[in-house]
Design a protein around this nucleic acid. Sequence first.
RNA 1: GCCUCUGUGGCGAAAUUGGUAUACGCAGUGGACUUAAAAUCCACCGCUUCGGCUUGCGGGUUCGAGUCCCGCCGGAGGCACCA
Length: 983
Amino acid sequence: MSDETKKPKEQYTAEPQWRYNAALAQDIELKWQKEWDDTGAFYAANVKGNLVNGKGDHAGTQKPYFAIDMFPFPSGKGLHVGHPLGYIATDMMSRYHRMKGENVLHAIAFDAFGLPAEQYAVQTGQHPRITTEENIANMRRQLHRMGLSFDSRRSFATTDMNYVQWTQWIFSQIYNSWYDPTFTRPDGGQGSARPISTLIDQFTNGTRSIPGHAGAQWSDLTTREQEDVLNDFRLAYISKAPVNWAPGLGTVLANEEVTADGRSERGNFPVFKRQLRQWSMRITAYGHRLIEDLETVDWPDKVKAMQRNWIGESHGAAIHFDVDRVADGLDIYTTRPDTIFGTTFMVISPEHPLCEKAPAEWPVGVPEQWTGGYDSPLEAVRAYRQADEAKSAADHVSDGQTKSGVFTGLYAINPVTGQQLPIFTADYVLMDYGFGAIMAVPGGDQRDYDFATTFGLPIVYTVLPQGVIVDDLDGSQPMVTKVGTVINSATESTAHGQQPLSLNGQSVADATSTVITWLEEEQIGNGVTSYRLRDWLFSRQRYWGEPFPIVYDEDEVPHLLPADMLPVRLPDVPDYTPKTFDPDDASSNPEAPLSRNTEWTTVQLDLGDGLKTYHRETNTMPNWAGSCWYYLRYLDPQDDTYCVDPSEEAYWMGPDHNATAGKSGGIDLYIGGVEHAVLHLLYARFWHKVLFDLGYVSSSEPFHKLFNQGYVQAYAYTDSRGQYVPAAEVIETVEGSYHQFEWNGEMVNREFGKMGKSLKNIVTPDDMYEEYGADTFRLYEMSMGPLAESRPWNTKDVTGSLRFLQRLWRNCINEQTGLSTVTDEAPDLKTLKLLNKTIAEVTDEMEGMRPNTAIAKLIVLNNHLTSLPAVPRAAVEPLILMVAPIAPHIAEELWNRLGHDESLAHADWPVADPQYLGADLVTAVIQVKGKVRAKLEVPSDITEEDLRDRALHSEGIEKWIGTLPPRKVIVKAPKIVSIVPSE
RNA sequence: GCCUCUGUGGCGAAAUUGGUAUACGCAGUGGACUUAAAAUCCACCGCUUCGGCUUGCGGGUUCGAGUCCCGCCGGAGGCACCA
């Protein structure tokens, strides 16, 4: 009995079989993903070789479009909904360009070496190769479920041996190159990487003298001596300069990996400056080109500015100062040589070699505070240097006006004035910028001023500051009184036989060039360009990275392994965990895990002069190495002859490959987070330029168009104790403008920021697939707001995206039968006009990568179709095609159910018919004193006179303009009439 | 401190060269359908003392300013002893 009463109710309430809900979406999505895989729908065709498109063809005359994301790191945690934002955008653009008939290369690889993978492996007790592979498998599954149109044949991980081999090969090319700043490149530019053999030729035939061995023959030098000379030229070289040592991480780090407060970006450990022997890349040789060529790429201004700031090119002068009793004297760098008359003391870095020349006795009459309380300059300087070494990078930054330092007991001579200047050592002068020494001008520089006031040193002003009257400073001669004019800067002195110099009355810019010319004539100094950018520290004391293709002989001379010995495989080691230390233990020393396998480190090789014993380099490369060139490997992933075949690189990335790419060439679209603005993007540009100089690639820049997607942010909730509560369970109530949040009957506070496990606010793509389906998820991500902006995730808003797809589905499909309901009758004029307007506008939005506004317009069209008694095929088919890049599965299914046998992946993007674009009637607005007072329906081709006339006589307008003739009437036909009434 | 960017309804956000501010979505309100609810469909939805007032605040340019200029205030990001 009860069964009978229930049964009809159930039948009644059950959802129709063909309602577009999460379950149906899943069926559709899995079906089409399989179809795409089976038919190779997204296979991109190469020029030659075995990579052809799904139809079996090589690239023909089709325009190429190469669009990729910054590839992911295969994390053990998997993805949350914030991660795929960029991937969906790139996929949308790839699908759009495919429908425009272009040959689209869209692929993904995995950045699988590096610290986090290693740490994850340590936690799980498994070999990093195993955990890395598991993580990649999980990530592939999550990404595949999203329906991203990758060419699956072009996917790889940076840890694949076949890839490592070519990473090592590129290192070899860099190692075997030097930078010749005078060489004219084939593209007409000055300066180029060249094979090191061309440098050896110059040494051998005497066209270049051998540094440190003047007059010697190259062949007379020992192998050791030759290598030492070459090391100073190689683009990958062994550096003995101060490096960043993080004991808590157990490895050294690049400058780019150290935060502003002197801690490691990963792990937040203190970083110490240490003199350690490490591999370095001479990226500074490319400083100018890395700035200059930013002009040739289509990047956000913000990222360009960040790279310019990071490289920090500045123009100034190198000036030589004689030093009492020290033959070599002292060279300094300044950007303000015009202020040399205001120099009242000198400062050298504690690491500066001149510190070692500190005398054993204080000069007579030295103020107490200059001595630091020590009995001699020698002791004072030694103590100051020791204290300096123990400081972490963070402790070096002085707080405000207090500056530390000590007098060296030495005096320099101002080459312009002949004045004696005390030389101090202080840690505010850095050894690795300029010459590690400055001329201090307390009248012009805040830091010098702070130091001068601390140590009671004189202050001289040489540039007229605001509000100072000229006669007070220099009444002796008549002068212009302009702020920024150089004053107090003249010498009659000819003590060294120099020409007198006066800068008085000149502008700073003029004075600067005057003094540089003078310095060059007198051979005291010269104009130089300096960079903030340091060479790139390239070795790490880690297990999970690429081994260097380098061995050392018994004299510690490095030898490069030839290409046929690559790849150098990572050996097994008894323990691959990094050796870490007390984070504050500055005296600790790095230990490379690879050195633990002594069977591997010692090796017998024949490198051309018989079998000899060598030991291997035990450092590994930083994980930036793999990300420096992976985009090239997509083009030609299986090549055994080249890292990328030149003809493939020319087709996909060359300067002529695509009208959008401009003269630099490069990838058509590269989407990723702004956090890589000065790390990956700078390093990759550098490697690419070396490969360009050496003739391996034809594009001078790797990434022609760069786009930074915003971050997906999320709300998190804390209870009264400050503990995070599960965000999904929080109930929000709104009263007026007042919002309340409740969890388990308790009021909780809302905060806004990242999505993270500890914040209990993670939403995963898997959650979305289950509740809404991949298409709804993709659509929501694209409709949240402008792609470049960060936006908060709001799961409840996702329903709006689902409703749009449901309505689209219902417009085409009978929910009971699953059959098409569209009519083949022609659409009415209103529909045609809206359709063509939508096509024109959505095309425009897609070109500008504004999916949020594109979607709004698609919804408007769809809502209009909903209001029609029957949905015309001619209107809904273009709509389906336009939805396809964003929600591809439902689009394919509808396309199929409407009777198309072919996938729409390569269908033609709709084109607007111009005859429906112009409007016959438009609304003209009548403004009086800038306020809208009336509206008129007028023909769109109305003349200005006509419109003016009709506006002035329109109903009710005299109420606003009065009876007097208006003072002024502006007409912009057919939209605006602006009336200024007489008073 | 220096360099970028940003500020519009209850919320996410639109507004192409200065030309009808608030498209589209969420939330909300009312109605139709239903025994009822959900779903769906239709309508409304900045504030207002009904004069008007509204794009963080104060000025300016203009017939007309969210948009351009000057000065503040708030928010985000980057760099930071770089001579």
